[in-house]
Structure formats: structure tokens, C-alpha cells
């Protein structure tokens, strides 16, 4: 007779947006550091996207507290083995990185750009953290299914990467920043992330076995299989592979990936709390 924390939509959004923020920043930092000058657009889009997202994350996190004004109490304690504790710290720290990187993304000074790249390399670690710690957080609870899933953090990370990249690519499409090779590289990286995510998901389900029932069968099964696996991963991949020459399909694929990423958090959180 266990008790669910009753984390609902706000937390689903938090998990989702945190994943994108982390994924986007990491994409930006990689592009910044390892891409060419022409990939600058990718870097700027990623940095600039992650900043407001982390901000929203922070707000969601605070808003969801029973006593929001006591958010600071989280910062009064630091428990390095406690995902919730470090998570709260990291949102703040990562927020700083996104802020600095965003500001620096407008610089024309090469010195500053170099600094930005270095900052990006450190910040991407925090981005990764934000994308994955939420998974580790729930997998280290007493709840069945969550606590059985050793790959929850890994899965959230893969999903954070794929949605972050999808978001960057979508934003680039919308803002018309698709010129240059950056956009293509993002999509390529995203393709890789999605394939990896599918693999992790398969391993995740395999390792869970019957413990995965809350999402693989019953009420949430259609959403999981249809919404996440088919619509959120397989179809975008197919669209991407088969139709990557048709420009208009790319944003559709990106949107589907994003929806899939949301669905992943939604089914995982809600299936045992509903």
C-alpha cells in the first residue's frame, strides 16, 4: 500500500521542458565547440532556447511546491546522493550557464566566443544532468515500475537529447535559419539520438519485464505504443530517413518527436499515479 506523490501535469511539463532545455543546450555546446563557424546558428538557437526553458522549469518546479516560497529551503540543504536536492541546485546552476551562454551567443569578439565555447563544454554536463536526473529521481523512489526501471535516467536523457535537437531544428526552421549545414547536422544528430532512444527503450522494457505493465498494458498502453513508440519515434525516423529530401516533412517529424517526448513523461508519471 504505497502512496503516490501526486505529481501531475506541472511536473510532466517540467520533466519535458527540462529535457528539451538540457538537450538543446548540449546540442548548442557541441555545435559551438565541434562544428564549423557555419554551425553558429545552431549554437545560438540552442543556447537561446535553453534559457527560457530552464526559466520555465524553475517556475514550474517552484509553482508545484506545496509552499512555493520555501523553494529556497531546497538550497539551504545539499545532499549529493539525493536527486531532488541536487536537481534543485542544478536547475539554478544550469540556468546560469544558459544565461551566460545566451548572452555570449551575441558576441562578435572571438575571445568571448572562445570563453563561450569553454563555458558550453562545462554547461553541457549540467544540461545532461537536467535531462536525466528526473529519471533517476523517480527511479529512486518506493514506487513500483519507477523504482524497477534502472534505465529511467538513461531513457530520459536520450529523450531529452532527441527532443532538444528536434526543438532546435524546429526553431531553426521556423526562424528561417535553415541555411547552412547546421540544420542538417542537427537533424542527423537527432536521428542518431532517436535510434539510440529506441534501443534504450527496448532495453528498458526488456529489463522491466512485467514491471512495465503500467505503461505497456491497460489504460496507458495506446498512448505509450501509439503516441510514443509509433508516433514519437518510429514515424519521425521513417519520415526522416525516407523523406529527408522533402523539406516540409522535417518540421512535422520534429513536432512528432516533441509530442512523443511529452507523452513519454506523461505515461511514465501518470500511469502509476492515476
Amino acid at each position: 500500500m504505497l502512496k503516490t506523490p501526486d505529481w501531475e501535469l506541472m511536473i510532466v511539463w517540467y520533466f519535458f521542458l527540462g529535457g528539451i532545455a538540457g538537450g538543446a543546450y548540449f546540442t548548442a555546446a557541441i555545435a559551438d565547440n565541434f562544428g564549423t563557424v557555419r554551425d553558429r546558428a545552431v549554437a545560438r538557437t540552442g543556447y537561446l532556447l535553453s534559457l527560457p526553458l530552464v526559466g520555465m522549469c524553475g517556475m514550474l518546479l517552484i509553482a508545484d511546491l506545496g509552499v512555493p516560497r520555501r523553494f529556497l529551503n531546497m538550497l539551504a540543504a545539499f545532499k549529493f546522493w539525493d536527486p531532488m536536492s541536487i536537481g534543485a541546485w542544478m536547475v539554478g546552476v544550469f540556468g546560469l550557464f544558459t544565461f551566460v551562454s545566451s548572452v555570449l551567443s551575441f558576441t562578435s569578439s572571438e575571445k568571448m566566443a572562445a570563453l563561450r565555447r569553454k563555458i558550453g563544454l562545462v554547461g553541457l554536463l549540467f544540461g545532461f544532468f537536467l535531462a536525466s536526473y528526473t529519471g533517476v529521481l523517480i527511479s529512486n523512489s518506493a514506487m513500483p515500475f519507477w523504482s524497477d526501471a534502472r534505465l529511467m535516467g538513461a531513457l530520459f536523457l536520450a529523450s531529452g537529447a532527441s527532443t532538444g535537437m528536434a526543438a532546435v531544428s524546429l526553431l531553426m526552421f521556423v526562424t528561417g535559419a535553415t541555411a547552412g549545414e547546421g540544420w542538417g547536422k542537427v537533424k542527423k544528430a537527432d536521428r542518431f539520438s532517436m535510434i539510440f532512444e529506441l534501443l534504450v527503450l527496448a532495453a528498458f522494457l526488456f529489463m522491466l519485464g512485467s514491471a512495465a505493465k503500467p505503461i505497456t498494458t491497460g489504460h496507458f498502453a495506446p498512448l505509450f505504443w501509439g503516441g510514443l513508440v509509433a508516433m514519437g519515434l518510429v514515424i519521425p525516423l521513417v519520415l526522416d530517413l525516407v523523406g529527408h529530401r522533402v523539406r516540409a516533412l522535417a518540421p512535422i517529424a520534429a513536432v512528432l518527436v516533441l509530442v512523443g517526448g511529452f507523452i513519454l513523461r506523461y505515461v511514465v508519471l501518470m500511469s502509476i499515479q492515476a
Partner: peptide
Amino acid sequence: DSLLSVGSAIVIGLGALLAFRDREQGDGN
């Protein structure tokens, strides 16, 4: 769980790295 996440981060990181290291034109252009 954290180590597994780190592992997954490394794989993804490598993938992205390769994608952006690619001096050839991307395929989305």
C-alpha cells in the same frame, strides 16, 4: 542509475559530436 545515464550521455554525445565533426555538408540543405 546515474552511471547508466552517464553512459547514455556519452553515447549521445559521441553521436552528436560525429554529426557536427562531419566537415561534409549536412544532408538537410
